[in-house]
Simulated scan of single mutants.
Amino acid sequence: MTRRNARRTAAEGATRPCPCGSAQAYGDCCGALHEGRAVAATAEALMRSRFSAYAVGDTAYLLRTWHSSTLPPRLTLDPGQRWTRLEILDTERGGMFDTVGVVEFRAHYRQSGRPGDVHERSRFARQDGQWVYLDAV
């Protein structure tokens, strides 16, 4: 793929609906966080951006937004798994003035043509002033 085609493909992806389920284009929503043009203001916003990172295959962002105490040495995504939809079921704290929060969600995917989902309560914390994923409860 030429550099020109790669730029066009990235620009087209930025205008597609964001995988997190917001009504915004990816480039204006989670794409801005993935590219470092914005930071997540809440734990839920970080959860949504991390789901989108799984959906677009952005392992660098996932690792960057993982708490240092639980950060895995590497992360390999399954290329056969396609993340399709996110449902936020509940949030506890995790607001703009909080230091910890919990987001319960259901993430839907397709693998080998079959649907599946992951149901999790994730804990988030602020580290160096930014929201990061800590672990699953």
Rank of each mutant, 00 (worst) to 15 (best):
A11E: 07
D78V: 00
F51C: 02
T2E: 13
R85Y: 13
R82Y: 12
D90K: 15
A53L: 00
R7T: 08
D28G: 13
G36D: 14
D90M: 05
C20N: 00
A55C: 10
A43Y: 01
C20F: 03
R82C: 05
V39H: 13
Y133I: 02
A107I: 00
E44M: 02
T99S: 11
L62E: 15
L77K: 07
A55S: 14
C30R: 00
W66Q: 13
R74S: 11
R50H: 05
T65F: 01
G101M: 01
P79A: 04
P72V: 06
Q127W: 11
R93A: 14
L63G: 09
Q127G: 06
Q24A: 10
G80D: 08
A41M: 11
R82M: 10
A6E: 07
F51R: 04
T99M: 14
M47I: 01
A40Y: 04
P17D: 04
M96D: 12
M96S: 15
R50N: 07
Q24Y: 05
R4F: 15
S69Y: 08
R74W: 12
F97M: 07
G31L: 03
R4V: 10
Q130C: 11
F51K: 02
G80M: 06
G27I: 05
D78L: 12
E92M: 13
M96I: 07
L71P: 02
P73Y: 06
I88Q: 03
R50A: 02
P72K: 08
F105H: 03
R114H: 10
R74F: 15
D90G: 11
R123E: 06
I88V: 13
R85M: 06
T9E: 15
R48A: 04
D78F: 15
T15P: 04
T91H: 05
R74P: 00
N5Y: 13
R48T: 03
G101F: 01
Y61A: 03
V56E: 04
M47Y: 03
V137K: 10
W83I: 01
C30F: 04
Q130D: 06
L75R: 09
Y54C: 03
R74Y: 15
T84G: 12
R64H: 11
